[in-house]
Structure formats: structure tokens, C-alpha cells
Amino acid sequence: MPKKIANTTNIVICGVGGQGIILASDVLCQAAFLEGFDVKKSEVHGMAQRGGSVITHVRFGKKIYSPLIEEGTSDFVLAFEKLEALRYAHYLKKSGRIIVDNREISPMSVLVGQADYPANIDRELEKSGKTDFVDATTVAVELGNMRVVNILLLGVLSKYLDFKRESWEESVRKNIKEKFVELNITAFNKGQTS
């Protein structure tokens, strides 16, 4: 790895289209910006979002060139679904960490019985890197709103990033409709203390 990009933090965020992945990356980027980093993010819109596999790249550090994370260099894979975590696990660097919602959503081929959902997926993930399994959906449902899964997962991620609390809160306020801010901050806290 060239020295110049060694102090960059790379985070792959992935899941199923429609899960609020883009919002999660917006909140993360804004927080990184408030921390004074150069930030880049790349996402896909359109066709890919209709219940398909979705990946967003977030990078921050002193100076960022490419908006895309190179395979094998990601510090984190933040996944909203286990199969998607596995699909993008090759982005992880050796010492990287997977944070994944304990959730399985079957793609169409599995639903109609043409393919199998990988059997020991938890173990497969652990082979790719240290893995935090988080009951994000379960907790979000307890909080009364499935949609806060994304912010809850960011709460988990925040344990490993040295960001100020204010940066996260300000970013949540900037990106989320006012009437949902409190709920989302509660979700963030749940993630952070999980």
C-alpha cells in the first residue's frame, strides 16, 4: 500500500436496495466532514436499487482521490444483510471488521427454490474477518420503526471511529426529518452501547 493513502479509512456499506443504505452513507460522510476529513462517497442509483444488491463506498482521510474502495483495503464492511456482507467481504482488509445485521433476506432464486441461502453463513463471515453480529432489525422493531436500522448500525460503527458525539448528532439532524431525529438518536445510542 502506498504511504500516501495509508491513513485513509474505507467503509463499504451494503445491503438490499430500499434498506436506507444511501441515507446511512450520507450521515457517515457528513459526520466525517464535521471531523475535518476530506471525504468521498460513491453509490449507485436507478435499476440497482429495486430490491437488488447495493453497495456504497465511503472514504475519508487527509486527501482522497478515488471515490471507490479497492478490494482488500476496506477497514469496515457495514452490512444490512448477511448474504450481502458475504458478497462484498472481499473488500475487507486482513485486519478489517464486518458489522452485520443479524438478518437474512432471500433473493428471488432462493425464494423460488432454485438456489440455497449459504448454510453456515456466520462462520463464512467470520473467516473473512472479525465480525460483529448485531440484532439491528429486532431492536429497531422494538423501537417501533424498522427504518432506524441504518442509524443503529452507524451507532455500532461509531464505537470504532474516533468521532466526537456532536459530529454524529449534527449529522443526524442535518440528514433526517425533524420528527424522526429523536427516534434515530435513540437508535444510534442503542447501537453504540450494544
Binding site: A48, R50, M108, A115
Partner: peptide
């Protein structure tokens, strides 16, 4: 470069679908 560790083939694809 080191061969990709991409697990293609073993992971069922997830193409977009009608909602």
C-alpha cells in the same frame, strides 16, 4: 496483484426485482 477473494459462484446473485 493478488487474486481477488471474491466469492463469485457460491453466493446466489440478487438482481433487482419488481417490488
Amino acid at each position: 496483484v493478488r487474486k481477488s477473494r471474491k466469492k463469485e459462484g457460491r453466493i446466489p446473485p440478487r438482481p433487482p426485482v419488481l417490488c
